[in-house]
Design a protein around this nucleic acid. Structure first.
Length: 579
DNA sequence: TTCTAGACTTGTAATCAGCAAG
DNA sequence: CTTGCTGATTACAAGTCTAGAA
C-alpha cells in the first residue's frame, strides 16, 4: 500500500458491498488505471432500395445519398408532432439543403411539395417485419447485442471491471429539443472517429479506431471520469461516455452528495434564521438573495442559471425568474399574502403553485417588482454564482441544489415515519412508501402526462377487483355452508372442510385488498412520476432502513437497476439509519 | 469581475422485452 | 399464438456548478 501513499492516495476503511470506496485520492485524481475498447460508432447509412421513392411536386425524384439520408430522418418522424411545427420544418429544411447537390437545391424549393410517405411507409414496414421475425432470428440478434455489450460495455478502472453507461455514439438524426426550442429539427451530424477524443491510462491497451481512420486525440487525464468525448454540433456542447451508476466512481459520488445534504440538515436552522434576518437587510442584493433562498428551500426550486437567449427554450429557475412569472395577492380566499408562481422550468415542464408567504417576503416581492416590466428579472441583483458563493460561505460544499436533495430526503424520512403503521400488511406498507415518495415528487414538481392508456388500465384493474369480489362472496357462502354442515355432523371431515373454506376466504380477502391497494396507488399516481426523485434525490439508505425495519422485500421498492445503483446503500444502512 | 468551456447530474421520452389475456 | 399492456431500459436533452482564461 506504500505505493498508493506515495502517489497521493490514502486508505479509507469503510467497507461497502464487496468493493471498498477504498482509495481516495487527495490530489483530485479519479483513477490510476483505465482501459476500455472505445465507443461503438453509429452504423453507416444504408441507401434505400430502388422501389422506395421520394416525390417532389408529385413526381418521383432520386436523391443523392447525402440528401436521401437526411430525408429519411424526416420520414421516420412523419407521424410525430414535431414535423408539424414551423420551427422544426424550417430548421430541417435549411440543414437538409446543405446536404443537397446543386441540382437538387435548384429543383427542391418548397418543403410542402416534398412527399416522404413512401419512405415513411417503408420504415414502418421494416419495423413491423422486425417484430414478425422468428424466434431464432430474434435470438441471433440478441446474442449479437450481448456480444457487443461484452466487448464494449465494460472497462477496467483501477482494480474493477465496471459497466459503461452509454458506450454507443449517438447516431445522426434531427435534433429533438423540448418545449419551444429554437433549434428543433436541425441536423445532428454523424460523429466520425476523427471527432472523438479517447481518455484512458497511458499504460493501458488503447482502443483502436476503425481501419483507415484515426481518433481526434488520445489523452490520459485521470482528473476526469469520462472515457470518450465528442463535440455535438447543435449547441456545440461536449458529450461523454461515462460509467454506469452501479460503478464505484458514480456510487461514491452519490454517497458524497447525500453526506453533503446531511451536513445541511445539521445547520439548516441556523441558515433559515439567517435568511429570515436578511429579509430586513438595508441592501437590496441581500434581500433578493434571502428571498430567493427562501423559495429554493421552501419550494425546492432549481437554482436557475442564465441561458443564452435564442439558443434554447425559454425556461427559468429561481434566480432567473421574471416579473411575469409571479403574481401577488394581498388576499386570496381566506389566506393573506399569496404568491402565485407560473413558469416553465427544466424541460419546459410547467411549475404552477400558489403559496401563502410571510408578510415580510410579500413586502419584499412588492419592492422587487417596482418599476419593472413583465420581462424584467425579478431578482435583478442576483444570479446563481452570487447565490452559490454565499452558500459556500455558510457551509462547505453547499450549493443551491443541495436544498433539493436535503428537502426531498428529509420529507421521505418524515413521511415514512408518519404513514407507516406497524400492523399493516406488506402491500399496505408499500402503498405508504409510495405515498411518501409521492409527497417528494410533488415537492420537486416531477409531473407526468397521464399515460395514454390510463383510463383503460384503471378499468381493467376495476374489472379484476369486481371479479375478485364475486369470488369472495361465493367463497363466503361456501364457508357458511360448511359451518352449518359441521354443526350438524360434528365430523372430522366437515371440520377440515370448514378450515379449507376459511383459508380460501382469507386468501381471497387478501388478494382483494391488494388489488384495491394497487388501484389506489395507481389512481394517486396518475400525474406524478416517482422515478426521478427515487433515483436522484432520496438518500437510498432511508429506504433500505425502512425496508429492513418492516421486513419488506427490497425488490418491492427497488427494481434490479435500482438495486445495482444503490448497492452501496443496501450494504451500508441498518434499520436504525437516520438521514 | 465576467465569460465560457468543461464535467457531471438530473430529467423526460422513446423503445424494448416479458408476460398475461384473448 | 398473437396482441396489447406494463415496467424496465436506453437515449439523449437540459440542467447545475466549477475552474480558469480574458
Amino acid at each position: 500500500m506504500n505505493s498508493f501513499d506515495s502517489c497521493g492516495y490514502h486508505k479509507k476503511t469503510t467497507i461497502m458491498h464487496g468493493f471498498y470506496f477504498e482509495l481516495r485520492a487527495t490530489d483530485g485524481s479519479k483513477w490510476r488505471f483505465l482501459e476500455h475498447k472505445g465507443p461503438v460508432l453509429a452504423p453507416p447509412y444504408e441507401p434505400l432500395p430502388g422501389h422506395v421513392r421520394f416525390f417532389y411536386d408529385g413526381k418521383p425524384m432520386k436523391l443523392s445519398a447525402a440528401a436521401e439520408e437526411v430525408a429519411t430522418f424526416f420520414a421516420k418522424m412523419l407521424d410525430h408532432e414535431y414535423t408539424t411545427k414551423d420551427i422544426f420544418r424550417k430548421n430541417f429544411y435549411k440543414d437538409w439543403r446543405k446536404e443537397m447537390t446543386s441540382e437538387e437545391k435548384s429543383k427542391i424549393t418548397d418543403l410542402t411539395k416534398c412527399n416522404f410517405t413512401e419512405m415513411s411507409e417503408y420504415f414502418k414496414a421494416q419495423s413491423e417485419a422486425r417484430k414478425q421475425m422468428s424466434k431464432e432470428e430474434k435470438l441471433k440478434i440478441r446474442e449479437e447485442n450481448e456480444r457487443i455489450l461484452q466487448e464494449y460495455g465494460f472497462c477496467v478502472m483501477d482494480n474493477h471491471k465496471e459497466r459503461i453507461g452509454n458506450f454507443r455514439i449517438e447516431p445522426p438524426g434531427l435534433f429533438r429539443g423540448r418545449g419551444d426550442h429554437p433549434k428543433m429539427g436541425m441536423l445532428k451530424r454523424r460523429i466520425r472517429p476523427e471527432d472523438i477524443i479517447i481518455n484512458c491510462s497511458k499504460d493501458s491497451k488503447h482502443p483502436k479506431p476503425p481501419q483507415g481512420t484515426r481518433w481526434k486525440e488520445v489523452r490520459h487525464d485521470n482528473k476526469v471520469t469520462w472515457l470518450v468525448s465528442w463535440t455535438e454540433n447543435i449547441q456545440g456542447s461536449i458529450k461523454y461516455i461515462m460509467l454506469n451508476p452501479s460503478s464505484r466512481i458514480k456510487g461514491e459520488k452519490d454517497w458524497q452528495k447525500y453526506e453533503t445534504a446531511r451536513r445541511l440538515k445539521k445547520c439548516v436552522d441556523r441558515l433559515r434564521a439567517q435568511y429570515r434576518d436578511d429579509w430586513k437587510s438595508k441592501e437590496m442584493r441581500i434581500r433578493q438573495r434571502a428571498v430567493a433562498l427562501y423559495f429554493i428551500d421552501k419550494l425546492a426550486l432549481r437554482a436557475g442559471n442564465e441561458k443564452e437567449e435564442g439558443e434554447t427554450a425559454d425556461t427559468v429557475g429561481c434566480c432567473s425568474l421574471r416579473v411575469e412569472h409571479i403574481k401577488l395577492y394581498p388576499k386570496m380566499d381566506d389566506q393573506e399574502y399569496v404568491v402565485e408562481f407560473d413558469f416553465l422550468g427544466k424541460d419546459s415542464i410547467r411549475y404552477y403553485n400558489k403559496m401563502p408567504v410571510e408578510k415580510r417576503v410579500f413586502k419584499n416581492l412588492q419592492l422587487f417588482l417596482e418599476n419593472k416590466q413583465p420581462e424584467d428579472d425579478l431578482f435583478d441583483r442576483l444570479n446563481t454564482s452570487i447565490l452559490n458563493k454565499h452558500l459556500q460561505e455558510l457551509m462547505d460544499g453547499l450549493t443551491a441544489k443541495v436544498f433539493r436533495t436535503y428537502n426531498a430526503s428529509i420529507t421521505l424520512q418524515q413521511q415514512l415515519k408518519e404513514l407507516t403503521s406497524p400492523e399493516e400488511s406488506i402491500p399496505a406498507k408499500i402503498l405508504s412508501y409510495n405515498r411518501a415518495n409521492r409527497a417528494v415528487a410533488i415537492l420537486c414538481n416531477h409531473q407526468r402526462a397521464p399515460p395514454k392508456t390510463f383510463e383503460k388500465s384503471m378499468q381493467n384493474l376495476q374489472t379484476k377487483i369486481d371479479e375478485k369480489q364475486k369470488q369472495l362472496s361465493t367463497a363466503r357462502k361456501q364457508l357458511k355452508g360448511a359451518k352449518t354442515e359441521h354443526k350438524a355432523s360434528h365430523g372430522d371431515g366437515s371440520k377440515k372442510m370448514v378450515e379449507v373454506k376459511r383459508k380460501a376466504v382469507q386468501r381471497l380477502e387478501e388478494q382483494l385488498m391488494n388489488l384495491q391497494m394497487q388501484a389506489t396507488d395507481r389512481e394517486e399516481n396518475k400525474q406524478i412520476a416517482l422515478g426521478t426523485s427515487k433515483l436522484n434525490y432520496l438518500d437510498p439508505r432511508i429506504s433500505v432502513a425502512w425496508v429492513k425495519k418492516w421486513d419488506v422485500p427490497i425488490e418491492k421498492i427497488y427494481n434490479k437497476t435500482q438495486r445495482e445503483k444503490f448497492a452501496w446503500a443496501i450494504d451500508m444502512a441498518e434499520e436504525d439509519y437516520e438521514f
